[in-house]
Design a protein around this nucleic acid. Structure first.
Length: 233
DNA sequence: GCGACAG
DNA sequence: ATCTTGTCGC
């Protein structure tokens, strides 16, 4: 599938934040999103050794699932190097090159992108899910495992319970319980999809575990790819 | 100024 | 993200 180019690439944190500020106006945060997506792509990245280092070896995976049956439709992996040091708020720049490479290798574009991290629930309202949304122009949202920005109340214990994630006086996401009695996940819209649609899809993708099948499948694929490529393949 | 801080 | 033992529970 087609993905917009990444240049200019930032060399400093100042340049990186400038890029986020320049791309943010391109976001579509009003579209409701696909009513019934046929395919959904899960994205995730695994690291070798200390994943906090700059230039750490990594593998990015994109796994496309049939939204109805959750069966794998297509897979893609790209082994590479962390393209930026880990800086909260600039996290996307670490994995973007490898993720884009994995996406470009897909034969057909999925209907939605499910990212491992945040969308607009970000200091400058431009997390990884927003960035990938703009680069692909596909509906995209993020599912994070731990809090980042904003405040929230603990949602009910039942699967499906939610509570708004607020930051700076606005709702930037939703804390969603995907499994009864299990720690919730943090969902935020990225591009061309509503928070409601993102949460509905998240529940549809989590029939058994806390994390969606999309990210679980991508996590395993990226991990296996790293193990299978001891050097640079 | 001092912590906190997606993965 | 990754490094790790034991432990509680279905």
């Amino acid at each position: 599938m087609e993905v917009r180019d990444l240049h200019p690439w930032p060399g400093t944190t100042e340049e990186a934040t400038a890029i986020q500020d320049r791309l943010r106006p391109l976001l579509d945060l009003d579209s409701p999103g696909p009513a019934a997506p046929r395919t959904v792509a899960g994205l995730d990245v695994s690291y070798a050794g200390d994943g906090g280092d700059a230039e750490a070896r990594l593998a990015a995976a994109a796994v496309v699932l049939d939204a109805a049956t959750l069966e794998v439709v297509e897979e893609s992996v790209a082994v590479g190097t962390a393209a930026f040091p880990y800086v909260p708020g600039l996290f996307a720049f670490r994995e973007l090159p490898a993720l884009v490479e994995a996406l470009r290798a897909l034969k057909t574009a999925p209907d939605v992108l499910v990212c491992d991290g945040y969308g607009v629930a970000h200091p400058r309202r431009f997390g990884l899910a927003c960035h990938l949304g703009v680069l692909t122009d596909l509906p995209s949202f993020g599912i994070a495992k731990t809090p980042f920005v904003g405040t929230y109340e603990r949602p009910g214990e039942e699967r499906g319970s939610t509570s708004p994630l607020r930051d700076g006086g606005e709702v930037v996401g939703r804390v969603l319980r995907t499994r009864t009695g299990v720690k919730p996940v943090f969902v935020s819209a990225g591009h061309r999809i509503s928070l409601d649609a993102a949460c509905r899809l998240t529940l549809a993708l989590t029939p058994e575990y806390r994390l969606p099948e999309t990210t679980r499948r991508a996590d395993r694929l990226s991990r296996d790819a790293l193990a299978a490529a001891p050097r640079g393949t």
